[in-house]
Computed example of a mutant assay.
Amino acid sequence: MPHRQCQCRDREGKSCRIRSIQAKCPIMVRRYYNLPSLIALAAFEAAARHLSLTKAAEELNVTVGAVSKQIRMLEEEVGNPLFLRRHRALELTREGETMAAALKEGFERISSTFRQVKTSGGQSSVTIGCTMAMAHLWLMPRMSAFWGSHQDIAVDHVISDHPRGLDRPDIDLRLRYGNGEWPDELSARLYDDRIFAVASPAFAREHAVETLDDLAQLQLLSVEGMDWSWTTWADFFRELGCPNRRLNVRRFNSHVIALQAARSGQGAVLGWASLVRPLIESGDLVQLSSAEIAAPHSYFVTWSARRPLSRQAGLLRDWLLSLDD
């Protein structure tokens, strides 16, 4: 059997010195699961999730060129392009979508298992995510009851007002406002809600509101720009049968900050009953008029459809569902 030079190269680019094809080249030995480079898979998964090489590079703390190189190597090994390179944009091919879905599910399972193993020798933990307003005004006032009866479970919190800020594999449960349907998530409804105008007591005394016309003429504080499932003042008046009004609106991308502005007398803000009830009971805010609407969406607790909940996460979910709003 003839001898010939092995054509592979090591990570430093040096040619392999094994000359007999009867010997096993250590570089060419495949991994047990016949997988490509895990570095390349991680680079592709990040780029597919962001649809951006730049954002993937920022997440992985490497250069854009390094991410691009890893993806090219992966595409060569797969034998098909995984991205369509548009002008200043990336688009997944059919093969890329298949790979991205498989990697997302796999990495989520690995992340969940890692955290379970990591904490198995100590206190069990559950991570729950929600918006700042939901955490501050609804969840936190209730959590002491759960901690009191489940002192062996540590609850970690991830707070984000960004629509995609809770799409992280390390979050077990999410409290979401919407129609109950989110990709790759199961959901259970917590409660429905009502929406009405609130303001500080001082503002209410200075601005008597007897009609919708009175309300429409006030300085209105609106939460817009982050999550368009959130009801705006225009939506509110339209639902009450009074569309096309000229409104004096100041916009915020945080409900907590808009509520703080209202508490300091800067205007009227729309309040979801479940969130503003503590502020009304404390006297910080008052309901300006009897006009109110049913919230177009409900609040849900959600969890991944791709992996089972831990016993601890299941306990927290069931406890949340047992609450009477």
Rank of each mutant, 00 (worst) to 15 (best):
P183I: 01
G314P: 00
H87P: 00
S229W: 04
T127A: 11
D227C: 03
A101P: 07
S282M: 01
R109T: 01
L309M: 10
F237Q: 07
K104D: 15
T93F: 09
G106K: 02
M99R: 11
R238L: 09
L247S: 09
S254K: 07
A199M: 09
N61F: 04
A268L: 08
E77G: 02
L92R: 06
A216W: 09
E59A: 12
S111T: 13
L220C: 13
V126S: 04
P308S: 05
F196N: 05
F252Y: 15
E210G: 15
R72W: 05
I195M: 12
A43E: 09
L320M: 13
K14V: 02
T54S: 15
L139M: 13
F236G: 07
W319V: 07
L285K: 02
K104S: 15
N80D: 14
A100G: 10
K69L: 14
K24V: 15
E97C: 08
A258F: 07
V269T: 10
L90M: 07
I159C: 03
E185L: 12
L173Q: 05
R115N: 11
V301Y: 06
R94A: 15
Q116W: 00
P2T: 03
Q151H: 14
S298D: 13
R142W: 11
A23W: 12
T113W: 03
R307L: 01
T98G: 08
I21G: 00
A42I: 03
A66H: 01
C130G: 05
F146E: 10
W272R: 14
H3E: 14
L221C: 12
L320F: 05
R86I: 07
E224M: 11
R189H: 04
L92I: 06
A100I: 09
T211A: 06
C8M: 08
R142F: 10
G148H: 12
L279K: 03
Q260D: 15
R142Q: 14
S222F: 04
K104N: 14
E45T: 09
S37T: 06
G265D: 08
C25V: 06
C25W: 08
R11L: 04
A40V: 05
M140H: 06
V198Q: 06
E210N: 14
A188N: 03
A66F: 00
S222L: 06
H162L: 13
V301S: 04
F107W: 06
D284R: 08
C6A: 07
W303D: 01
W233R: 05
L84P: 01
D192M: 09
